[in-house]
Nucleic acid binder design. Structure first.
Lengths: 221, 221
DNA sequence: GAGCGTTGTGACCGACCGGTCATATGACCG
DNA sequence: CGGTCATATGACCGGTCGGTCACAACGCTC
């Protein structure tokens, strides 16, 4: 957690530092990210970093927490309050999640890296927490979907949660390929034109379609 | 590619080295893996590594190629020649892939790491090739499935291939959690009892079930 | 044995890492 | 002005890395 010193910092400097740190962790995984580079990019001495945070790990935890709060907040704030059916709600959740990824590529890149972080001792706890929170959220949706009669009652819930989670997370890769959108470039050179929402929705329709109907050709009943 | 020197090595020494290198790359990602540690574990001087391979990258490429050939060969050799339906064939493919993962944890761990390798310049090409080969294989299955009438003709093939690929790859994580089987431990301390094939099949049934029928409760036709 | 090509060796190189700490700076107070 | 305290600094530390190279050891033929 940030020290009092960091919180007392003039806002401009604090943000300059945060931006530099996000830039670094959005492009590099934990081990490859360099505190020295962050300090250089922020225009401060390396020693100062250790006046603001306990160390690399502490800084990382702070950034991931911040990014997760922003993304979950963004999604929650974009969802309508009234509960539509499972598939509508799930599609909207993924849709707004993707919108967040396009408009906040740094934060999204950090979260993506954190999710796939090779399990070193310094990052395992953070990754596990992130994964647990996402799966808990999805499990809530699935449970409600079964109760509401939107989903088959004999569904293997564990597997369904796993599948929805994996596909949601890796959808980023799919979109990147399908729309030729490089998130790495977006982080490095800011922006790039995000995918039109219509095209995004079309992909999500294919996604939900497979979830809902399956892939099999059903012989006419 | 290995040098002539490496190929002239007595088999025992060559295998001792290969084993040590696999051990290292199965547990660490590319950047974290250490040539010095490999040399130490193999009981040779570090300089010798550079008599056998052009460098770290070359060694890595060799190992990934070797592991991929073994795994694809194992699966191909285990599949029946006659083409059953799409879902049966897909389930068998994943089944034998999982069997390979349990019985060859080092090779499988290396492939898994290579798949999720953070995209540094040294590993990007290898990861992309691995992913392309897997997706090409799956696309073949899907195309055949549509032609045979096993799959809906209006299926979004791109998305289907992506989903099947992602779920197959990450199935390892799911099994690890579901069966409390640590692949990392299996690599480090050899073996551990693999999941009984019945339990494995039960998971794959749930997998294929979702693929085939979808998740929606269908009102009685 | 001498000569020679192949293979083995590990000290060494420059680079970078996370983290520390003695010291400098500067703002506030009496 | 002196004193005090929060903050800023960057040279420095021990460590590890991938890679090199001068040299030693070996195996072969003559």
């Amino acid at each position: 957690m940030p020290t009092a010193t960091f919180l007392h910092l003039p806002a401009e400097k604090r943000e300059r530092f945060t931006t530099a740190a996000l830039d670094e962790f959005a492009v590099h995984d934990y081990r490859t990210a360099s505190v020295s580079r962050i300090a250089r990019a922020a225009g401060i001495a390396k020693g100062s970093v250790y006046q603001y945070f306990d160390g690399k790990q502490d800084l990382y935890l702070h950034l991931v927490t911040l990014a997760a709060e922003r993304k979950f907040g963004f999604i929650d704030g974009s969802l309508p309050a009234d509960a539509s059916g499972f598939f509508t709600r799930f599609r909207l959740t993924v849709f707004h999640g993707a919108r967040f990824d396009f408009t906040h590529p740094k934060l999204a890149g950090l979260l993506y890296n954190a999710t796939y972080e090779p399990t070193g001792p310094e990052t395992r706890a953070v990754s596990a927490q992130l994964k647990a929170a996402s799966q808990r959220y999805i499990r809530g949706l699935v449970d409600a979907g079964i109760r509401a009669g939107d989903l088959r009652a004999d569904l293997d819930v564990d597997f369904a949660v796993f599948a929805l989670y994996q596909l949601s997370v890796s959808l980023r890769d799919y979109m990147s390929e399908r729309f030729d959108f490089s998130f790495a470039d977006a982080v490095r050179h800011g922006g790039g034109s995000p995918v039109p929402e219509d095209d995004l929705m079309a992909v999500l329709d294919a996604f939900v379609d497979v979830l809902e109907r399956g892939m099999a050709l059903r012989s006419a009943a």
